[in-house]
Design a protein around this nucleic acid. Structure first.
Lengths: 229, 229
DNA sequence: ACGCGCTTGTGAACGCATGCACGAAGTCGA
DNA sequence: TCGACTTCGTGCATGCGTTCACAAGCGCGT
């Protein structure tokens, strides 16, 4: 059960970083890499914040959740901060990732170089379509979904990516969880039901477009009725 | 203090829907479509909330920003609510979309059926690589980026999707904005600078994985230090 | 006709996140 | 050594978003 929530104190523990902050850490990390490649050895919160597209106060507060790694009067050491942020994100190791659903999007993700660069390596591609099983994609060969357990166990994978149609997503998710996956990145437009202890993040391309559509619609309406300051 | 809010201090205007609510409207809409396909003619906030994965109070408040379209004691009429949510999202029309960067991901998105289903139609694919220009993808032929202005104008497109490498993203974005695009969906891992009045939404696959990595890392640490599984 | 039960819509309380302002702590030059 | 300057870390206030709880409203059975 949930022994983890035994301590219900209102105070925030040191290792307890707010979710909004966690979501920005990858952005900071990328900005830091750019700065490092550009030759900077130190950077002020102001400069880093600008590079990351946030306010400097927010950035300092975010980083303060990880510890006090800045030097007053100087700024942050870029290389050192990269290490600390990476450590906080758990990027000190390579994360094996399995991907289920080798359709259009699955192909694209399997071939996306950005994953390997950032410490994620695809250790298995799966599908149920016999026409796709055996196909070679990048450095992997598409396996049948039945082999999922073997691969997850032997590679000790804990992260799974779902790029199936919505109708198959929940079933695939169940099989991933059964195999031992505890973090799921879901591209299928479906709400996934998972047991406690399993994290799910959803990326829905249509949703994003519809949100843009909302604002676009509003802009058009605003333009018709005269533009108030 | 703020002249802009002079109209009605306490009351929120009808067209002023909180951003967090806007982000959930597409989720509700999808859940409604599922319910409609399932034969439901009415649905309670409790049931719809469960289908969308949110709390019922939140759902009611969200919908109340659009108006009072429910019937007390009964619930919401599914078909009617679909219309109202669609209208709020500006889905009463088809939105022409241009896509720049026909690489791995661009191919996948161009072939993704989910867009057309939801009222977005790709009216132009663009790239700068001469090897890709002329290639046929789906029902479109890849054009050179120089033709962007013509297509955007003739199709009256206002939404652009960027699936280029990060290094090209800002330049492409500038050209989109110059052509008249006012909403951008950016898949490149880069921070885009845009003038006021242009909306940008960013989707970064690596970021999502890194956020999962954070939680996975924390789960592992937690398992070691205190909490017996 | 009328009350009873169900569900919506919303005011109010609460909690989280953001922005501000300033003390603390370090560097650099004289 | 000392003082002036720079920049971090953070308490505090503010605003947004979520949750709670309940009155208002509607249909239905009697």
């Amino acid at each position: 059960m949930r022994a983890a929530l035994s301590e219900r104190s209102g105070r925030r523990r040191r290792s307890d970083v707010p979710e909004a902050t966690v979501a920005r850490l990858p952005v900071y990390l990328r900005a830091l890499h750019v700065l490092a490649d550009g030759g900077s050895s130190t950077v002020s919160s102001e400069a880093l914040a600008a590079a990351a597209g946030v306010g400097s106060a927010k950035l300092r507060k975010d980083l303060s959740y990880l510890g006090s790694y800045g030097t007053r009067g100087v700024g942050y050491d870029v290389a050192e901060l990269v290490l600390h942020v990476s450590a906080a994100l758990g990027l000190g190791r390579r994360w094996p990732v399995v991907l289920v659903g080798v359709g259009n999007l699955g192909h694209a993700l399997a071939g996306y170089g950005g994953f390997d660069e950032r410490g994620f390596c695809v250790v298995g591609l799966f599908d149920v379509d016999p026409a796709r099983v055996g196909e070679r994609v990048g450095e992997q060969v598409v396996r049948h979904l039945d082999e999922l357990d073997d691969v997850v166990h032997s590679a000790r994978a804990s992260i799974g990516v779902i790029t199936t149609p919505a109708s198959a997503a929940q079933d695939v998710c169940d099989r991933l969880v059964a195999a031992g996956i505890t973090s799921v990145l879901n591209f299928a437009p479906a709400l996934l039901q998972v047991p406690a202890g399993v994290d799910v993040r959803k990326v829905d391309l249509s949703n994003e477009l519809q949100i843009l559509s909302f604002h676009e619609h509003r802009k058009a309406a605003r333009a018709l009725t005269g533009v108030p300051a």
